[in-house]
């Protein structure tokens, strides 16, 4: 009986009643103060879930925004040397020094040329606040060895994919590609981190000079992301 009452209130508040049923319910509510109070309580509860859901969605949208922003910055940073190189090349051509005689630019299979750390900001946690702050500071200072030690000592129980990406990047920067991949492969299952995790998996194969596996990963990344996506652009450069 009690359950039936709450289901009816839910149907009213979630706008699922037909006009006639709604009017009858409203008349009933006018006469029954207890029912009216129950509706008000339930309305509050629905509003609380809406606010909570909005907040979670806003965080998700913020991650996508920051990710796009950071990748666009990385892309433009990487463009600068090449722009200058082309200017230099043109000058060389113009002054007739036979640019064509110079060796071709280093091939694409250069890890250092493509590796840039994931931008880690605003780590939050109710329980591990201080540890997270230290993790973020060490990571942003590029102290990857310390990042790994700190994680294994203090943060191993956390289940945050953003931390996993940063930890994976730290392993990768240390040349520990298999350890790195373990972290990225878990984070890859979270749609919020699919793009970055897949990108770094590809880079881990690049580091191992396993071109075949790298091609496979980047092909998958290109297939699963849209054209304007910064990871899509970067991965597409590798595909033969």
């Amino acid at each position: 009986m009690e359950e039936q009452k709450w289901n009816e209130i839910d149907r009213y508040l979630l706008l699922e009643m037909e006009e006639e049923e709604r009017l009858t319910f409203e008349q009933k509510m006018e006469k029954d103060a207890t029912l009216k109070q129950a509706v008000e309580e339930q309305q509050l509860l629905i509003k609380a879930f809406e606010q909570r859901g909005n907040q979670i969605l806003k965080e998700e949208l913020e991650i996508i925004y920051q990710d796009r922003k950071s990748q666009n910055t990385n892309l433009s940073r990487r463009m600068i040397p090449w722009t200058w190189l082309s200017v230099a090349a043109s000058i060389l051509l113009i002054i007739g020094l036979g640019y064509w005689l110079l060796p071709q630019p280093a091939n694409n299979l250069n890890f250092a040329q493509h590796f840039s750390p994931y931008e880690l900001t605003a780590l939050r946690g109710e329980e591990n606040g201080d540890y997270l702050n230290e993790f973020e500071t060490l990571y942003n200072q590029g102290k990857y060895k310390e990042v790994i030690t700190h994680y294994n000592g203090n943060l191993k129980s956390t289940n945050d994919d953003k931390i996993r990406i940063a930890l994976g990047v730290s392993y990768l920067a240390q040349g520990l590609t298999k350890e790195a991949r373990k972290q990225f492969e878990i984070a890859q299952k979270n749609p919020l981190f699919y793009d970055s995790a897949t990108w770094y998996i590809g880079l881990s194969y690049l580091k191992e000079k396993d071109e075949k596996s790298m091609q496979k990963v980047f092909q998958e990344l290109v297939k699963n992301t849209r054209e304007g996506n910064p990871y899509h652009i970067k991965a597409a450069e590798f595909i033969k």
Binding site: L14, L44, L45, I46, K47, A48, F49, E50, Q51, R52, G53
Partner: peptide
Amino acid sequence: KSEALQGIINQLGKDCKVVLNAYYFE
């Protein structure tokens, strides 16, 4: 009031949060 209620929602177990969120938010 809804904000205060959110603190109470957080005290629920994971499954309860998922089912109520799926019903009332999603």
